[in-house]
Simulated assay, not measured.
Amino acid sequence: MDRPDIPLNALRVFEVAMRQGSFTKAAIELRVTQAAVSHQIARLEDLLGAALFLRTSQGLVPTDEGRLLFPVLEHGFDAMARTLDRLNGRRDVEVLKVGVNTTFALGWLVPRLPAFRLAHPEIDLRISTNNNRVEILREGLDMAIRFGTGGWTGHDAIPLLDAPLSPLCAPDLAARLTGPADLAGMDLLRSYRSGEWPGWFASLGLPCPPLTGPVFDSSVALAELAAGGAGVALLPVAMFDAQIAEGRLVRPFGASVTAGRYFLAWPSDRPQGPAMTAFARWITAQATAPQDD
Rank of each mutant, 00 (worst) to 15 (best):
R126A: 09
V110W: 08
S38F: 02
R3A: 14
A157K: 00
Q286C: 15
V134A: 00
L109N: 03
V13N: 01
V220L: 14
G228A: 13
S191A: 12
D85N: 09
P71C: 11
R133H: 15
R55S: 15
L235C: 09
V250P: 00
H155V: 05
L118D: 14
H120K: 15
W152T: 03
D182L: 12
T212A: 08
G148H: 09
A221T: 03
L204Q: 06
A79Y: 04
R146L: 08
V257G: 01
A230V: 11
N88G: 06
M18Y: 03
Q286W: 08
V61M: 15
M239Y: 07
R82I: 15
Q272W: 02
M1L: 00
Y192D: 10
G49M: 14
L54E: 07
I123G: 02
V257T: 11
A51L: 06
L60H: 10
G154S: 00
V61W: 14
F70C: 06
L52Q: 11
E135N: 06
V237Y: 05
P71Q: 08
D292K: 09
L73D: 05
F104R: 02
M143N: 10
D241P: 09
L52T: 05
E45L: 10
E196W: 08
V237M: 10
F14A: 08
Q291A: 13
P274V: 11
R112W: 12
E135D: 13
L52N: 06
S38E: 11
Y192K: 03
V100P: 01
P271Y: 07
F147H: 00
W197D: 09
T56A: 03
V61N: 13
G107K: 02
Q58Y: 14
F240N: 14
P209V: 12
T56E: 11
R270V: 08
T103S: 09
P7M: 15
